[in-house]
């Protein structure tokens, strides 16, 4: 019993991927995210365009359009999706990591030009999804103002 007690109490965390306001996925104005079809998670209304890794892991892919970052982590597969319909504006993004690169929680993975996105009429909200979860437990979102790379936005409680 004692052998297991430590791991059973270990909660998993996802950090805020930037400064801003953490909200639930239901607040994302795109059904693909708000319905939970793509996975559980949280979203951030960003104040700052430096986007950070929410957890330790390995970059599985950076989309051609440079707005979506897939990370394989201990928690499961993670997807950081910057903006809604931002697939149309790849020039607004600068990836700071590449495929197969290891990243640490809080490490910058991309720069997003939020002003450019807004000027093009694109909603800059950032869904952070667990598309395939490996860590068991109850998912809890911490809504409210968050500091990127410092504050926890999602906890998986054992």
């Amino acid at each position: 019993m004692k052998l297991f007690s430590k791991s059973q109490k270990t909660n998993h965390h996802l950090l805020a991927v930037c400064d801003g306001e953490a909200v639930s996925l239901e607040a994302v104005p795109d059904e693909a995210f708000s319905s939970g079809m793509l996975g559980e998670g949280y979203a951030i209304v960003p104040k700052d365009g430096t986007i950070l890794a929410p957890a330790d892991g390995v970059i599985e892919s950076v989309s051609d359009s440079r707005h979506a970052y897939a990370i394989s982590s201990e928690i499961g597969d993670l997807l950081v999706h910057i903006g809604i319909d931002s697939v149309k504006l790849p020039d607004a993004f600068e990836p700071l990591v590449g495929k197969s690169e290891s990243v640490s929680a809080g490490q910058p993975i991309a720069r997003a030009n939020l002003a450019k996105l807004r000027a093009a009429g694109i909603n800059t909200i950032i869904p952070v999804l667990i598309t395939d979860r490996r860590a068991a437990g109850e998912v809890k979102i911490k809504c409210g103002p968050v500091r990127g790379g410092k504050d926890t936005a999602l906890i998986i409680e054992k």
């Binding site: 394989s72 597969d77 997807l79 495929k99």
Partner: peptide
Amino acid sequence: KRLISLMSLGAR
């Protein structure tokens, strides 16, 4: 059956 695997195809 794995979203990020599919996305990593980069199919245009």
